[in-house]
Design a protein around this nucleic acid. Structure first.
Lengths: 159, 159
DNA sequence: GCTTCTAAGTTTCAAAAAACAACCTAGCAT
DNA sequence: ATGCTAGGTTGTTTTTTGAAACTTAGAAGC
């Protein structure tokens, strides 16, 4: 018996996304790339990740279209490559901010959060929040229901 | 050289949160618990996770205060245990919804998302979104800046 | 009273995956 | 020729994961 087919690992959006970025390093790599750490050696040094692992993760992210490798050349220097987020990659930022928000609330030291994210256009801090389509703002512990959506493989009950 | 100390793995809120729930199974376990799958054998069967691994994950989550084990007894039956989210655990829901939103947008089949989350009080679908403190709604690819916060260990630059 | 059943794990041990260190390579710049 | 950057390769170690047997406790059947 496999109930809740909307959450089977082959259809669930959470499971699918985790299969792509849900290992020990990928989200940290993306965090650094978001932050402008784009060169291979910079990433390897900053993260303390083995170079072959980093190489593999970057290749997977590039293949999935989340990052792109761009060549650039500063005048008088030879060509370099940097990784940066693509559009779909930038859409992962809310995931990172959701992790950050939880960690700030529950794992930060008494001095406060180790980093602050601001809206580049206005300088105000950024919050991640849930809201329903009717406009109700949902608090940090919202009351939710989940049901199968159109892409669910839930079987029609046998008649 | 270790720049960007707000993102070193020992202080960064993202890294700390990932250290707690960032392995292959934990977020899927939490997803199921959120969804009311609370009994050990139910979880093991639904996820296809080895029982010892599940046992370890649940123990870690319980110790971290994200889930609690509650005993209950249906009339005429013997005592059972179920896991359910604590308050801090429920605050992880935005992380799950952020994964879900990205997967719905980028990995769902043509029929649409496999599941839909609604506000239990009003029935409207729930969206996760970024907004800055000045009230600007930020789109899916917001322009952001990151800077060290009060809990940062960033050293004053030596010079 | 003895046996059996089920839930909820625990233990043991083997297999697979991930991670790491160290060295190797290719291209370009000087 | 030499050195730097960005990786790739190789061999080993560590960590995770898994399958299956075992445990424990209460309930139920005989």
């Amino acid at each position: 018996m496999r109930p809740y087919s909307a959450y089977d690992s082959d259809t669930c959006s959470i499971a699918r996304t985790l299969a792509l970025v849900g290992d020990r390093w990928t989200l940290l790599v993306l965090r650094d790339v978001v932050n402008g750490v784009g060169r291979f050696d910079e990433l390897a040094g900053h993260l303390g990740i083995a170079r072959n692992i980093l190489s593999g993760r970057l290749a997977r992210l590039e293949q999935a279209g989340l990052v792109e490798r761009t060549a650039y050349r500063e005048p008088g220097a030879r060509e370099r490559h940097a990784y940066r987020l693509t559009g779909p990659g930038r859409e992962l930022v809310p995931i990172l901010l959701a992790f950050m928000a939880w960690g700030d609330r529950h794992l930060a030291g008494p001095e406060g959060p180790p980093a602050v994210v601001r809206h580049a256009d206005c300088g105000a801090p950024v919050k991640i929040s849930l809201a329903c389509a009717d406009g109700h703002e949902l608090g940090p512990r919202p009351r939710l229901t989940v049901e199968p959506g159109p892409g669910s493989r839930e079987r029609v009950p046998a008649r």
